[in-house]
Write a protein that binds this DNA or RNA. Structure first.
Lengths: 192, 192
DNA sequence: GGGTTTATTGAGCGATCACTCAAGTATATA
DNA sequence: TATATACTTGAGTGATCGCTCAATAAACCC
């Protein structure tokens, strides 16, 4: 029994790179030629590593969603549940290193849902997880007395996620002052 | 001088039909085969009538945007400026005949902006017009004393449009109670 | 009805799509 | 060093993309 050769690439780094490309250009907007050029992989290596364009897209979305939840958790540890929820809108708008401000999950869902594509269902699943994360933060904010208990945390989370999706879409437009919208969303949380 | 043959199709009806197809499936998600099948046009007739896929898409978006503004104006005539703004979220969620709840302009912008496609710029232009329409309604609501004058109508319009985009995206998901979000958006307008 | 003009038809264009695979190369163990 | 194993390469697959155009059919004025 002899041991084989190792791949020359860093699989995790390639997934992160693919995530940024898919995030910016979407599913149909990203061709294998694009991926091969950016990831510096020939078709053979690409398919040996990931199996298909859709399989890599699924990995990219999973990475995106995991990072999103982890980011909110970290933020909550630093600023508390309400602080994290209030800070997130501003952080999204101000983040300059993002491939694009719009949410990758909502972009994927919007693009592929009508055709019943499997990736749309996966995007939906990840959005549900994100919403659950928001709901937990609202619940914790209530228990900590940061906001009143008269509102349903699940409903607050749905509204918050919806506002965030709109904000992130709006932040892509140069005719919109997204900072103002972010501030207004945060201000609404103080009135709870 | 003799007179020519007339087309067998209703151009306006075809544009409306194309709008619904593009709206639902997006730009890349709609092939000429799809359009030829649905509009019952052979390639030759299609190109004689519209010139290109992108040209028809532009016409479809224009129709979408015109109808959107006209709809808000009609609503304002019936319910007053604040009444129209408050009613719109619920109407969007409850409308059952729509090809999809998400906004066609934001879908187009999200899909094509990164590649610098001309249609993304046109979508942006139409969204600006829609935002201006909202701002006018907020201004009229202020003049009518329906809401306070301490807020900037342009800022209110940007936030309102952002909320509406998020709502319409959320209304596509069956894990979200969009009616509740719509009610919450309308309720926020009463606190102005 | 004749003649003119335009609408309709559908085969097929080159380009690009996601993807395959046989041949060549590099790295591990023995 | 010999060999087994897996990685890398890139030409090439059939399918589909948006689109063209020559041939045919239909509707109009005279």
């Amino acid at each position: 029994m002899t041991m084989p050769r190792k791949p020359a690439y860093d699989r995790d780094a390639l997934i992160a790179q693919a995530r940024d490309i898919f995030w910016r250009h979407g599913w149909a907007g990203t061709s294998l030629k694009d991926l091969e050029r950016e990831l510096k992989l020939k078709p053979g290596s690409f398919y040996a590593a990931f199996g298909s364009k859709d399989a890599l897209y699924a990995l990219a979305m999973e990475r995106y969603a995991q990072d999103g939840v982890a980011n909110m958790m970290t933020l909550a540890r630093e600023l508390g549940p309400l602080g994290a929820l209030k800070a997130q809108p501003r952080l999204v708008v101000e983040a300059s290193e993002l491939p694009t401000r719009a949410c990758m999950l909502s972009k994927t869902y919007a693009e592929l849902q009508a055709r019943g594509h499997e990736l749309a269902g996966q995007a939906r699943t990840h959005m549900v997880a994100m919403k659950t994360c928001f709901a937990d933060l609202f619940r914790r904010a209530q228990k900590a007395g940061e906001i009143g208990t008269e509102h349903d945390p699940d409903r607050l989370a749905a509204r918050y996620q919806s506002d965030l999706l709109g904000l992130r879409m709006s932040a892509e437009r140069d005719d919109v002052n997204a900072s103002e919208i972010a501030a207004d969303i945060a201000a609404d949380l103080d009135r709870l």
